[in-house]
């Protein structure tokens, strides 16, 4: 799974109010090339939780993203390429996503996060 997905996922256990953002525990990450599409990046930028994306990138030791993005940067190809790389080209293959409130671990294996809840959590 890519960081774009991480940015959209939350812990949905009954009663949890702050199940976002999930902490990443990575044991294996991979880089996979993805077609660059500036229009898509401009579409998705305002939907993202930028702080969560920055923190996720930092926790994986990736190149730093700026704290704030100026509208002009969304026209700048250099910036968009860096943004694209972090958002879409880094895959979490093995590890876990951890709920910040309950500490519940959602395992990620073979690139697939298991977000399914147990009987006592629905």
């Amino acid at each position: 799974m890519r960081l774009l997905t991480h940015n959209m996922l939350a812990c949905n256990i009954k009663g949890v109010t702050k199940g976002y953002p999930l902490k990443i525990e990575a044991t294996k990450t991979e880089e996979k090339e993805t077609d660059f599409n500036a229009g898509f990046l401009r579409h998705i930028y305002p939907k993202l939780d930028w702080k969560a994306l920055r923190e996720a990138a930092a926790s994986l030791g990736l190149e730093e993203l700026p704290e704030q993005v100026e509208p002009s940067q969304l026209e700048d190809e250099d910036f968009l390429r860096r943004f694209h790389h972090v958002l879409l080209e880094i895959h979490l293959e093995e590890g876990a996503l951890v709920c910040p409130e309950t500490g519940r671990r959602f395992p990620v294996s073979k690139g697939i996060p298991n977000m399914l809840l147990n009987e006592d959590e629905v």
Binding site: M1, A10, K32, I112, P113, N114
Partner: peptide, 22 residues
């Protein structure tokens, strides 16, 4: 490859609540 493949339940969706128009 897909942005992600998740194991998840359509009835208990794992998306953050404020996801809109994505």
């Amino acid at each position: 490859a897909p942005v992600a493949i998740l194991r998840a339940d359509n009835h208990q969706q794992p998306w953050r609540n404020d996801i809109r128009e994505t």
